[in-house]
């Protein structure tokens, strides 16, 4: 059988989601953001929520998420995405409301809003990209930067005595009464991509059903910031990040029912 016999519309099993616009994304080659954007688009399509979805994009690499995923968006001030999402969901409870934030936005400058939004149990979904570095500003230390990890602002490696410890924020959020579902995933293999997609779907459904706050942390790579190839960055993530940020569900109130 020739390739031309296989490559026919009726045989297609995977394609770019329609909601992901036909534009060149500014992300570096191999960046995890692209995968997560794709998953967000797929889930919104599959749930049939394109007319109800409202995203809040952060300050950081994902600031231009609104140029890529073809839904209504708000672009927040640095760290304030969950405050904005709170208002949108309260004012329009029938909408799918989610934020898309990096580790600086969510776990440094926005920590106050992040914690209080989760604690109030706002029925929004939070997609939290943790790549342990500030990508957009050029590779500076993040709250989630690992001890010993080199960045532009800890060029000899992060030291606890100088820079404090890496912040693992999702376990804190899992303790709050307002959170419904808190999980930590990654997108470095096909199997992990499938799991992350399922997590995003659950988070979005929780938002629609008014069930409280869902947090999907995606442990990600920043190969440019880490100064590694995309492939090596995935390896480095597995070998170093997963120890501090182990994958899996941290909380799922719906699973407890069994």
């Amino acid at each position: 059988m020739e390739n031309n016999d296989i490559i026919k519309v009726e045989n297609r099993v995977y394609k770019k989601p329609e909601l992901l616009r036909e534009v060149h994304m500014h992300y570096c080659p191999g960046c995890s953001h692209g995968v997560v954007h794709k998953l967000v688009s797929e889930v919104i399509e599959e749930l049939g929520l394109a007319e109800k979805a409202i995203g809040v994009s952060p300050v950081g690499c994902a600031v231009f998420a609104y140029n890529y995923i073809d839904i209504d968006w708000l672009e927040a001030a640095h760290g304030r995405a969950t405050a904005m999402a709170t208002a949108v969901k309260r004012l329009m409870p029938d909408k799918l409301v989610f934020t898309y934030q990096g580790d600086g936005d969510f776990a440094a400058i926005g920590t106050c809003e992040s914690i209080h939004t989760c604690n109030r149990g706002e029925s929004i979904a939070i997609i939290f990209i943790n790549n342990a570095i500030y990508g957009m500003t050029g590779g500076q230390m993040a709250p989630t930067t690992l001890l010993g990890q080199k960045t532009a602002t800890c060029p000899y490696g992060r030291r606890a005595d100088l820079n404090g410890y890496p912040l693992s924020i999702t376990p804190l959020l899992a303790q709050l009464d307002g959170t419904r579902y808190v999980t930590r995933q990654s997108v470095h293999t096909a199997a992990n991509v499938r799991k992350t997609k399922a997590a995003i779907k659950k988070a979005f459904m929780n938002s629609m059903e008014g069930k409280g706050t869902s947090v999907v942390e995606v442990v990600s790579t920043c190969n440019t910031g880490w100064k590694l190839s995309p492939e090596k960055a995935n390896q480095w993530m597995v070998e170093n990040m997963f120890e501090k940020y182990p994958l899996g569900d941290l909380k799922d109130n719906d699973a407890k029912k069994d």
Binding site: I54, V56, A77, A83, M84, A85, T86, A87, L91, C112
Partner: peptide, 20 residues
């Protein structure tokens, strides 16, 4: 009506609501 966690959060909630 929502008592926010700070004035910073409040004004950004207003920003969001106004954007809607």
């Amino acid at each position: 009506v929502l008592q926010a966690e700070s004035e910073v959060a409040s004004i950004n909630m207003v920003y969001a609501g106004a954007s809607c």
